[in-house]
Amino acid sequence: MRGFLGVDVGSVSTNLVVIDEYGSVISLIYRRTQGQPISAVQQGLKELQKDLTPDIKIAGVGTTGSARYLSGVIVGADIVKNEITAHAIAASHVAPQVRTVLEIGGQDSKIILLRDGIVVDFAMNTVCAAGTGSFLDHQAARLGIPIEEFGSYALNATVPCQIAGRCSVFAESDMIHKQQMGYRMEDIIYGLCQALVRNYLNNLAKGKDLSSPIVFQGGVAANAGMKRAFEEALQMEIVIPEHYHVMGAIGAALLAKGTVRNGETRFKGFSVSSIDYRTRSFHCKGCENNCEIVKIQVDGKTLACWGGRCGKWEVQNPEEADLLVQASTTSSVM
């Protein structure tokens, strides 16, 4: 049976999903990236291999997330796509009648409005990542609460307290202040959830017609406090899809399925989990810009580079990349 692999390596989590020809999830892995995208992908692949039955053949791979280029080289991706597109595709696949998609990931948040399966409007957060998953993560660590229990704390709130959510720096000092004043932890945490929802709705949803069914996805959807805060703010029911936390990976897998069709995949196989990949960065000396170029190598041979402004390092095949890097190192010695 053919399976399609989607890999979503984000700032907080690394997710791998295998879907079948009909787009149903056969297997999924959710693990923390912990700042090490390469080993996160490799460990994820190992777990996935154990989980899959031997009759499943990977026929296509898509990668997404902030480490999509890196993970694309490691697994051999057929398509590399940004996480926003991947999420939108996954949402309309699992809930074809959906009209509003709220998505909060590790570092980004977005809203997508669909009508009859077609995107009619969308917005994404700007550079500022206030109110996204990594901020919640940081706060949970600061309060000494496992992030998984954040939601249940929030649900136990009785008198949520007002937290300034406009900027995460202010939110943090506000929370510390409230703690010192003696507010209950539960009330502070739910107050934070409300602040984040307020921030989200003000930034992304202002003036938009949010109609149900509303789907809430992304890692932050695991937080029941956020769901409650959204429902209270919008006075509408919020649906959290079964695989809310790996929707990006599902989207990448669906994109791979659409790209490969009946062609050959570039998937390098599960054995890549035991290869020793190394990444290095260097400054290109080609012009005044001195771009920082990242190269990924195996046994001293370069597989790919990226990061330049002009695009000369972004070559498709590994041999060319290796030659480029060799040429640049000999010239800089001279």
Binding site: V119, V120, T126, G307
Partner: peptide, 26 residues
């Protein structure tokens, strides 16, 4: 699209790419 001297390439390209994808999909 707001640019400044600290513009992160990753964030900006992601947004533009997604914008293009959405327009195509639309």
């Amino acid at each position: 699209l707001v640019i400044d001297e600290h513009s992160g390439e990753a964030g900006m390209i992601t947004r533009v790419e997604a914008f293009v994808d959405m327009l195509r999909w639309r």
